[in-house]
Each structure stands twice: as structure tokens, then as C-alpha cells.
Computed example of a mutant assay.
Amino acid sequence: MRILDAEFVQGFIRMANDGWEQGWHERNGGNLTYRIKKEEVESVAENLNRNGEWKAIGTSVPKLAGEYFLVTGSGKYFRNIIVKPEDSLAVIELDDRGESYRICWGLVNGDRPTSELPSHLMNHEVKMIASSRKHRVIYHAHTTNVIALTFVLPLEDKVFTRELWEMATECPVVFPDGVGVVPWIVPGGRDIAVATSELMKKYDVAIWAHHGMFCSGEDFDITFGLMHTVEKSAEILVKTLSMRPDKLQTITPQNLRDLAKDFKVMLPEEFLYDK
């Protein structure tokens, strides 16, 4: 099968374009990676080049040794993925130690995978273990309203989780574990990768202060839907705060407990505090 005809590639391209249309990917902002299933690799195997040069990842992810990923390229614009996928994307293979990668397809103009590759792969490893191999998608985008909130709310998990849960009834159901918050760190390096991977042991969402959001999920729909829900909740909160700083009414801790009971989700009590 041609790589561009594969369903997982088409799903990847659609998700990337959906993010562009939301306004989350100015210029070359954001990145997306997908851990490819074994049967999907086999379906396109004849079109993979396994003779490429091995290059250091910049971190070690031994649990991902031998895995294949579909990734966005460094400096690539999300708006171009749908029209120039072979220039914008790559299939990479990790070596048998999880320390190096090689490009097996794509990035036809000689570019390299996303500069956030260490963050993505470290978090793929964490989420693969935590989810018993179910999670396959890691998505980073510059979500406008979430970024705005990082300038006015305390950079604390419990504050962001509680405020976002209160803004829309579906939120505690969509992300019942809450969200984590990473203080501002220079992007693209090991420090932000380590800080994020620690939070992702507990959460599926990490907010990067003054930068954006980082989400993990089982497939493209779940992961995009997770980010979309968090960002919409943030938009409601931004609008609420712009109208008046104190709410006249809200969803209370007991309301949230009742919601959790009916929807059969567990909400950590640490986020159900009295303000």
C-alpha cells in the first residue's frame, strides 16, 4: 500500500488540518506524533526505506525500542501538511536501544523530525506504560485561551483543573484525572521533556505555561477531542473573567461529585476543595 493511502496517515493529516483550522498552529507552531501499530507498519513496509542514517534522539526511551512513529517535521507549517504531506511528515524507526532514530519515509527535502521529538518520545513511553499500550497519539498545540490563562491563574494543577471543570459540565467526564501544569521552560530540550513526562504519569493533559498544551490519547479522535474540550473550557473561562472576576454561580464540589457518580468516573478529591 502507498503510505499516503494508509488510513492511519489520512487520520493523522486530518487531525493536523483540524488543528490548523482551529487557529492553534501559527507559522510552524505545534507538533504531532503517532506510534504506529505493527499491522499498519506491515501494510506499508514495501515503501519504507530502512537504509537511512541513524541519528541521536537526544534522550533514551528503551521501552520504545524498535517502534515506528509518524511525526511532523521541524519548521514545518501545519497549514501545508494537507497539501504537501511528503515534505511535512516522516515515518521514523527507533533503534534497538531507543536512543537513535532513522527516517524511513517523508521529509523529502532533507529536513528532520520535530524539535520536540525528545518530549514526544519520553511521553509516548510514559503513556504507553501507564495505559497498557493503548495510548498512541501525542499532540502539542498553541491553544490561545489556555495560554492566556497561564498569565492570570496560579500555575498549579489544582487551580487549573478546578477552574476548567467548572466551565462546562462535560469537562470532568472528558478529563476526570485533571490537568497538570508545567512552568515556563525553554522548549525543545530534555528539561521540558522530563518535567512533562512526570506529569503525564498522572494526567493526559499538560499545560505548558505561556506556550500551549500537550495531550495524549488512544487515537486521533480522542486526543483531538481532549484538547478541543480543554481549550473550549478555557475560552469560556476567559470570557467569564472578562465580564466579571467573581462568579455569581458555578458548578459546586457537590455538583461535581454527583456528576461523577452518574457518569461513573472517579474525580480526585484534591480538586474538590472549597474556595
Rank of each mutant, 00 (worst) to 15 (best):
M122L: 14
V159S: 09
G73T: 06
D262H: 08
F8L: 02
E125F: 11
K232Y: 14
H25T: 10
G75D: 05
A141I: 01
E125Q: 15
D204A: 14
L248Y: 11
P172R: 10
S242A: 15
H211L: 04
M167S: 03
M227C: 04
V152K: 08
V61Q: 07
A168H: 14
T161D: 09
P85I: 06
E40D: 15
I82L: 15
D274N: 14
S115C: 09
I222L: 02
M167E: 11
E7M: 03
A234K: 06
L241S: 06
E40R: 03
S197A: 12
L64A: 09
E86P: 04
N255C: 08
L272M: 02
W105S: 12
P183V: 11
W105F: 15
G180R: 01
E235A: 10
K134L: 03
T72Y: 01
D262E: 13
N31L: 08
F263Q: 14
I129Y: 14
A45C: 06
G11D: 00
T161N: 13
G178Y: 06
E170V: 00
A141C: 07
I57D: 12
T72G: 11
Q22Y: 13
V182H: 00
Y203L: 00
A193C: 02
R257T: 05
V205M: 03
A209C: 10
K275A: 12
D221A: 14
L64K: 10
E156H: 11
D246M: 10
G29H: 07
L248V: 13
K76M: 13
T114D: 07
S131W: 03
L149M: 11
D157I: 03
R257P: 00
H124Q: 09
G106Q: 05
S119A: 09
D191M: 07
N51T: 13
A234N: 00
K127C: 03
G75I: 07
T250V: 08
R27K: 09
K275T: 11
L48I: 02
K202I: 10
D246I: 10
E163Q: 10
D157P: 01
W165D: 12
F8Q: 01
R102Q: 11
